[in-house]
Each structure stands twice: as C-alpha cells, then as structure tokens.
Design a binder for these strands. Structure first.
Lengths: 233, 233
DNA sequence: GAGATTTTATGCTAAAAAACATAATTAGAA
DNA sequence: TTCTAATTATGTTTTTTAGCATAAAATCTC
C-alpha cells in the first residue's frame, strides 16, 4: 500500500498530467484519496461490459484499448502512453465499457473513484475543461482514424500506423527505432488487416528500404517515403 | 433578426436540449447573446479547416457531418438531429474543424459564441458535464462505428446503417418508413461502400423482403432479419 | 415541356485483401 | 535443456468489393 502510493507520485508531478489543473488543496485530496494499481504485461485493466469505476491515469507503462468485432477479431481503437487518461468515457456516457484495456508492458495506474472525480469537476472548471479537451482530442483522433482505416489501402494503413506509433511513443536514442515493441498481430489489429498481411507488408516496406525490422524492433529509415505511402492511401 | 430569434425559441424550451442545465439567469443570457442561423438543403454549415466559432445547437432540420478521405471520397462520421450539439469539439481540441457539416434539409441553428460558451462552462458545472456527456457519447459511437465499418461486410454495414437511421430519426406514422430521405450516395458514404454497391445491396434487401424502397423512402419490413444481417457482419 | 443533368439500376471486369496452407523461427514451460 | 506452443514468414487460392460501362428513370433548368 505504501509502495503503491510512491509509485503514483511521479504522475502528480508531471507537467503533462491533468492534475496540473488542480489547486494545491485538491491535489492533496487526490494524493489521499487515489488508489494505485499495478499490472503485468498482458493483464486486463478493464474489459467490455465492465462497469466504469472512475478516472484512470496511466503513470507508467503502455496500454492498448481494443474492441472485439466480427468473429472476436480485435480492433485497437486507442494506444495510451504515460499521463494519458482512460476509463472515464463510459462513466459520462452512462454505459458500461465498450472496449477492453490491456497492459502492453508492466503498468502503473492512478485511480480516482467516480465520486471524487465528480467532486473535482464540480469545484474546478479548469479540471472539467481538461477532461473535455481529452475527450475532444480522442474524438478527433477516432474520426480521422475511421476514415483512414476504411479508405486507405493496406500499405497506406500500415504506413499510417507506423507513423502514429512513432508520434505516440517516440524514438530511442538512435533516433530511428520506435519505442514500442508490438507483435505483428497487434500491428495488424491496429491497422485493420490480417496478421499475414501485416507481416507481408512490413517485409515489403523493409525490402523497399522504408523501414528495417529486427524481431519486434522497427526502425524508420525513410520517413518522407513513409509519409507519402500513408497519404496516398 | 427578429424572425431569427423566434426561430430558436423552441430549442430553449425543449426538455432534451443542453440548455435545461442552465439557471434562469443563464438561460436569459443565452437568449440575449445567441445568434440564429438558417440554412437551406445542401448548404455548408462549416467545412474542414474552418476555425470553430462556438457551440452550435441544431434547432430544426437534419445535418450530416463528413470527412473527405482518399480521392475526395466522403465518409459520414455523424448524423445530427434536433437539439444535437455540433461544432465545439474542435474548439476544445484546439484545432480547426476536421470535418464538414452540411444541411440535409432546411435547418435552423442556435449559435453560442466561444467566449459566452466558456463563461457558461466556468460558472455551471452541470452544463460542463452536459458537454462532457455529449462528447463521451459521440466518442463511444465513433469507436463502435470504426469497428463495424472496418470489420463487417457490405450487407452488415448497410443493415447497420439502416437501423442507425431508424434509431436516430425515427419512423413515420405508418410505423415503418424511416424519417429521413437520403440519396443512395449518402447512404453509401455513411456505410463505407461505393454508390453502386449501396444501390445493389438495397435492392437485394428489397427483393429479400427485408425492406421496401420507393424512391428515397425506405420502409423496414423485417427488423429482426435486418438486425441479424447487421450483427452477423 | 424539351433538353440537359443527375440519380438510380444492373451487368461485367479487375483489383484488393482475406483465407488457407505450410514452413521456419522464436519464445516459453516442464 | 528439450519439448511444446506461439509467432513470423511466404506462397497460393478464393472471396469480396471497387471500378467501369451502359442504360433507364427522375429531376432540374431554361
């Protein structure tokens, strides 16, 4: 328990986290009232049909949020990075979760339960605006993504996903390796294609010198070309 | 100008509109400060890259919101019915509009400019929560839709769209005709398919006795079968 | 109301992507 | 470590859907 609270500490101090909108008193309230949860790789954080419990702030780790569609085939609808918000959309839409969140690596979450969350929203409009902003950005992302996934061809969709992963998680010190290691299946589920097509197209990109692959490590070799492939569909 | 304000009146009085969250003083403020805009069928309300001006409340009419993708092909991301909210997502995401809104029939909008909107959010947390709720519902819709449009086959996508139109706009007095008349092209753009496939699949549904078509009027004859087609993909 | 334009309808062909099959490789468990 | 299971790789076939063509019907414009 002691350990737990220490693990969330960095998330109260980050300049990127929604908690920066809180007054010192409110931040103390959150420090006292929050709970902290730890997940190992592949652990499920919440799943479709679960009841939402409040606001989840990702302190550490990486998370995929996906929805199961036809024949249990999963489509990743969101990738979360540290200080991103999760789990509160369903609360406000007054429904159960419509997607499943799974840890892609060891993950630490800071949890604000729904009553505490409502209290903060009611007494601090900047905090409320922060939540509005988060939903507004996610909705923009989702709308753009719907069109890209439905209209672009396989190469365009995969190129877009690679660029998206780079934007979201950044690059390692070599300035070219994307800082996330996904299975080909996850890459396929992100890009709306079968696993074999993801594998095939990745190796085509590699043979074209656009990327290089080493197991699950993807290096971007020619970002201009990747952007061209992505935008031409 | 006089005329204009009268046209928005019904929207201040509806039990479904976000203005119900306002205090009487705030409602008066809105009555004084709002502006009212009229659009004819096919008029553009805002388009991609336009700067957002505030909150738009649809008082009367029907609106499609679409995004242009590969080869200017449009994908409808939202259909708006009276008392639905529009145009404020981009404001909070701090970006320009990423989609175009077009009137599908003669339409009346109530416009709250962004400074007035911010004032209302800051002084009334129920109003802020109403906006959060609207975005949260839209985001859920968008995520569900992304998966349906990418994973379902043509028949499933079209069946889903027909059911969605029925849910959104309701039925006429005969209890079977959907209360919106869209071109085959719009139906195609809603369902992620080419116009010819929309036409073809609609006439297949008709010959199977699932629906009947009379020009742009669609009657649902066998809703159970339609639901089955939609859910099986 | 005649002519032009748009929308709807249907058939045919081509392209894209899924499905399937079979290895090779890698990672995980006993 | 060795065996097993999962992941990655690649070739082939089949299905789905887009693209194109043509014509009929409906709508708009002058």
């Amino acid at each position: 328990m002691m350990q737990k609270n220490i693990d969330c500490e960095k998330c109260f101090e980050s300049p990127d986290v929604i908690f920066t909108k809180l007054t010192p008193e409110q931040l103390n309230f959150v420090r006292e009232r929050h709970s902290c949860a730890h997940y190992k790789k592949n652990d499920i954080i919440f799943k479709e049909e679960d009841e939402p419990i409040g606001l989840l702030v990702l302190c550490e780790g990486k998370v995929k949020v996906f929805r199961e569609g036809v024949g249990r085939r999963e489509q990743i609808v969101r990738m979360v990075k540290p200080f991103g918000l999760m789990g509160f959309r369903a609360l406000f839409a007054e429904e159960n979760h419509i997607a499943t969140a799974m840890a892609l690596e060891d993950t630490v979450l800071c949890i604000i339960d729904k009553d505490d969350l409502m209290k903060l929203i009611r007494e601090n409009s900047d905090f409320a605006i922060g939540l509005i902003r988060s939903l507004a950005s996610d909705l923009g992302f989702s709308n753009r993504r719907t069109v890209a996934l439905t209209q672009k061809h396989i190469r365009g969709r995969l190129a877009e996903s690679i660029l998206f992963l780079k934007e979201t998680y950044g690059l390692e010190d070599d300035d070219s390796t994307i800082k996330i290691y996904l299975s080909r299946e996850d890459i396929a589920n992100l890009s709306n294609m079968t696993t074999s097509n993801a594998i095939r197209t990745l190796s085509t990109f590699s043979s074209e010198g656009v990327i290089s692959i080493n197991g699950r490590k993807i290096k971007i070799l020619d970002i201009k070309k990747l952007e061209r492939i992505s935008s031409l569909g």
